[in-house]
Simulated scan of single mutants.
Amino acid sequence: MADDHTHVQDFFSVRAAGWDRRFPEDGPAYAAAVGELRLRPGDTVLDAGCGTGRALPALRTAVGPDGTVVGADLTRAMLDAALRAGRRSSGALLLADVARLPLRAGTLDAVFAAGLISHIPHPGHGLSELARVVRPGGHLALFHPIGRAALAARHGRPLSDDDLRAERRLAPLLAGAGWRLDAYTDEASRFLALATRTG
């Protein structure tokens, strides 16, 4: 597990400072995805693997001034970039492994996770941990600002049905972790899977 974490931290640490410049047009896509998370004023939401915190302003808008927004990431350099971008005003920033969150069970109304699932060493365990901290009936959004085919092309590989984000793989993975897949979108402009906490 430590080696997996080191790999993720090494990957993102060297990219953190220029991350937002690499993807400057993603803001509206993040806001649109947050809009589908069914957040209400006063809710408590986690941005899991928040990176530079691009979703935090939209999450703050959704839950309002009485809500709670927390961004958690494993890589200190990404959180430092979020601080430099002024995103701490939208939510608290937490250096934490999303597979071992320092949060009590059932304390969250929702989790937003952009690009996270492919960076979790053990996705089933990570999704179970996210389920642990969300109340029954709470929501999860797994998001990426481009779809699976576009992302595969960006990385120079063919699209595969073995991809964790393929619906036929993702639905049972979520179900085994305490989630019910409610909606699945995989198109050129975005990937968005919406799930509800069961039990």
Results as ranks from 00 to 15, higher is better:
residue 42 G to F: 03
residue 45 V to K: 02
residue 91 G to H: 04
residue 155 H to D: 15
residue 47 D to T: 04
residue 135 R to I: 02
residue 50 C to L: 06
residue 137 G to Y: 09
residue 27 G to A: 15
residue 129 E to C: 01
residue 34 V to L: 12
residue 138 G to L: 06
residue 23 F to R: 15
residue 168 R to S: 13
residue 91 G to C: 07
residue 135 R to Y: 06
residue 140 L to D: 01
residue 67 G to T: 10
residue 179 W to D: 07
residue 1 M to G: 04
residue 55 A to F: 12
residue 66 D to L: 08
residue 53 G to N: 06
residue 181 L to H: 05
residue 103 L to V: 06
residue 55 A to M: 11
residue 183 A to K: 13
residue 17 A to M: 05
residue 128 S to K: 07
residue 176 G to I: 10
residue 61 T to D: 15
residue 128 S to Y: 01
residue 34 V to C: 08
residue 2 A to H: 06
residue 87 R to L: 08
residue 65 P to M: 01
residue 5 H to L: 11
residue 152 A to E: 09
residue 159 L to H: 07
residue 47 D to Y: 00
residue 166 A to V: 05
residue 60 R to M: 07
residue 11 F to L: 15
residue 193 A to P: 11
residue 140 L to Y: 00
residue 96 A to S: 06
residue 138 G to Q: 02
residue 172 P to A: 05
residue 135 R to G: 00
residue 174 L to E: 12
residue 180 R to H: 14
residue 169 R to Q: 15
residue 94 L to I: 01
residue 121 P to D: 06
residue 142 L to N: 09
residue 100 R to P: 00
residue 144 H to F: 15
residue 139 H to R: 15
residue 15 R to Q: 15
residue 192 L to N: 09
residue 51 G to P: 03
residue 80 D to R: 05
residue 70 V to N: 00
residue 179 W to E: 06
residue 187 E to M: 04
residue 14 V to D: 13
residue 83 L to W: 05
residue 62 A to K: 02
residue 152 A to I: 10
residue 2 A to I: 11
residue 128 S to R: 14
residue 122 H to V: 11
residue 136 P to N: 10
residue 70 V to S: 01
residue 20 D to Q: 14
residue 126 G to R: 02
residue 143 F to Q: 03
residue 79 L to N: 05
residue 102 P to V: 07
residue 70 V to T: 12
residue 110 A to W: 12
residue 168 R to K: 13
residue 24 P to H: 10
residue 95 L to S: 08
residue 3 D to F: 02
residue 96 A to G: 04
residue 188 A to D: 15
residue 34 V to F: 09
residue 36 E to V: 04
residue 175 A to C: 05
residue 195 A to G: 01
residue 149 A to W: 00
residue 170 L to H: 10
residue 82 A to N: 04
residue 159 L to E: 14
residue 147 G to Y: 13
residue 11 F to S: 04
residue 109 D to L: 00
residue 135 R to C: 03
residue 170 L to K: 11
